[in-house]
Structure formats: C-alpha cells, structure tokens
Computed example of a mutant assay.
Amino acid sequence: MKFCSACGHTVTLRIPAGDNRERFVCEDCGTVHYQNPRNVVGTVPVWDDKVLLCRRAIEPRYGYWTLPAGFMEMGETTSEAAARETLEEAGARVEVQHLFSLLNVPHVHQVHLFYLARMLDLDIEAGEESLEVKLFDERDIPWDDIAFPTVGQTLRFFFADRAAGSYGLHTGDIFRSLRDG
C-alpha cells in the first residue's frame, strides 16, 4: 500500500500507538489501514454418492479441478456466500448444511470454509469462472489435477467421514504454496 484511501496522502509502515504490529498509517490524516485475512467460502455439493467439481477457467490454477468457492462479499453470511459461489461457478442450487472444514492458509492471508451441501437438482452448468462442471464418484476424483491443497484436504475429510458414516467439523492449517497443488 502506498497511498491512504481516506485522503490520498502517502502512508508509512509503522507500529501505531496502542498496537503491537506494523500497519500502514497515513501521516497526514492519521488513518490506520488494517489488512486482514480474506474468507474463501464454498461447498462440498453432493448428489447421491457423487461430489460436484468445477474445472477452473481462471488463474490461479487454470484448468484444474476445485470445489465451487470464492471470496465472501460484504453483507453476506458465510453460508450465503457459499451458496452464491456454488450457483455462480456451477449453476448448482444447493441446500447448505453444516460447516464442514475450516482451513487456515496463512501464507496467502486466507481462511477457507467449506459447507456440506445437498444439491437440489441436476440442473448444473459451468459459470464464467468454470470450463466445465462434473459429478464425480470417489474413485474418479482427478486427485493429480486438484487446484488447491484446501480442496484436496476437504475432499479427503469428506470421503473419510462418509466411510465412517458420520460427518464432523474439520479444522487445520495449510502451509503449502499453490505450486504444491
């Protein structure tokens, strides 16, 4: 950050009074610019024994498979954002169920939240950010072509829980980069 969004003057990186971390501070108007992690929200959309995946039409990870997800917008709850992203990316209408995975991704300043979701029908189609959408049996998941570590981990949690007959909440931290898949 170079300029203050409040007044347009140059900002400096320093620890403001009463804080313990470096922040961008405007020396002219005194505005402290906090930068916080972004929420990425999505679903694990399920139809019978299959999971819906989207093949990405955008970078990063163009052409790789992912669960429908994206950045939360202002004024949304996390479950509303998850349903919206699923509709936008996969054309899928879902009944959002419980929060299934919450994975911290500190190296990219994100928190990824995935909800279990029951697909309401099979009326699906690729949105602008997807090349294609497809339902997969566990044995057919394209594991080597999964876009992000959080998606792969969430899918592993899902299939393990399904095999155990009970779905829980899974949390954790992901420290790998995009290059690691």
Rank of each mutant, 00 (worst) to 15 (best):
M1F: 08
K2T: 09
F3P: 01
C4H: 00
A6S: 12
V11A: 06
L13W: 08
R14L: 13
R14D: 05
R14E: 14
I15N: 04
P16I: 01
G18Q: 07
N20I: 13
R21T: 10
E22C: 07
R23L: 00
R23Y: 05
F24I: 01
V25P: 01
C29L: 06
C29S: 06
G30F: 07
T31A: 05
H33V: 00
H33P: 04
Y34H: 11
Y34E: 09
Q35I: 13
P37M: 14
P37N: 08
P37V: 11
V41I: 14
G42D: 05
G42N: 01
V44R: 02
V44E: 00
V44I: 15
P45K: 04
W47V: 08
D48H: 14
D49E: 12
D49H: 11
D49Y: 06
K50G: 03
V51I: 13
L53G: 05
C54W: 00
R55M: 12
A57N: 15
P60S: 12
P60K: 03
R61S: 13
Y62K: 09
G63S: 08
G63L: 05
W65S: 03
T66K: 08
L67E: 07
G70N: 04
F71D: 00
F71H: 10
M72W: 04
M72E: 10
E73D: 10
M74T: 13
E76C: 04
T77C: 07
T77D: 07
E80N: 06
A82Q: 02
L87I: 04
E88Q: 08
A92V: 02
R93H: 12
Q97P: 00
Q97M: 15
H98N: 13
L99N: 03
S101N: 03
L103M: 12
L103T: 02
V105W: 15
P106N: 08
H107R: 15
H107T: 14
V108L: 14
V108D: 06
H109C: 07
L113C: 08
L113H: 12
A117F: 06
A117E: 05
A117I: 04
A117W: 02
R118T: 14
M119Q: 02
D121Q: 02
L122P: 02
I124P: 00
I124G: 01
I124V: 15
E125P: 02
A126F: 07
A126M: 06
L135F: 14
L135Y: 09
D137P: 02
E138A: 07
R139N: 11
D140K: 09
D140S: 15
P142Q: 05
D145M: 12
I146F: 02
A147Q: 07
A147R: 03
P149L: 09
T150C: 11
Q153R: 15
L155Q: 01
R156E: 15
F157M: 03
A160N: 15
D161F: 10
D161S: 10
R162W: 12
A164I: 06
G165Q: 09
G168A: 11
L169I: 14
T171K: 07
T171F: 04
I174S: 08
I174W: 03
F175C: 05
R176H: 11
S177R: 12
L178C: 03
L178V: 11
L178E: 13
L178T: 08
D180I: 01
G181H: 12
